[in-house]
Amino acid sequence: MSISHQMMKGLLDGAILGLISQGETYGYEILDKLKAQQFPEISDGSIYPVLLRLSKKGYVSSLTKKSDNGGPKRKYYSITDLGLAELEQFKVKWQYLNQGMNNLMRSVDIDDSAQ
């Protein structure tokens, strides 16, 4: 099922901030964690623009380090105080929106609406 680009953009910001708030991480690890949670339509190319946007807004900071396994250097991301505040706002907005959508969907009978 395809999810609208604009809808995914807003959700990815919150999801990635949430993951980074759990501890320092890098792009490919974020991608793996999102896929493990069955987050829809995630590609390698969709993560890095979000990380750049979050960084420009001051929500995350980054540090390039050597890889643990001797591979190429990686950019590790950490959440800032501003990012934590944004994540809290996202969580409040998400709960509000999610509750409203769940209430609405419970009241909609799919079989009746098709007639």
Rank of each mutant, 00 (worst) to 15 (best):
I3G: 05
S4I: 04
Q6C: 04
M7F: 15
G10L: 05
G10I: 00
L12D: 02
G14C: 05
A15T: 02
I16P: 01
I16M: 04
L17C: 03
G18Q: 02
E29C: 03
I30Q: 00
K33M: 08
F39S: 02
P40Q: 04
E41K: 09
E41W: 14
Y48R: 11
Y48Q: 09
R53N: 04
R53T: 06
L54W: 00
K57S: 12
Y59S: 00
Y59Q: 02
S62K: 13
L63W: 07
K65P: 02
K66D: 11
P72Y: 14
P72A: 11
K73F: 07
K75V: 06
Y77S: 01
Y77E: 00
Y77W: 08
I79G: 01
I79K: 01
T80E: 03
L82A: 11
G83S: 05
G83D: 00
G83M: 01
E86W: 01
E86M: 09
L87K: 07
F90V: 11
K91H: 09
V92G: 09
V92F: 15
W94L: 13
Q95N: 14
L97V: 14
N98K: 14
N98D: 12
Q99M: 11
N102G: 06
L104W: 15
M105S: 07
R106G: 05
R106P: 01
S107N: 13
V108M: 14
S113I: 11
S113K: 09
Q115V: 10
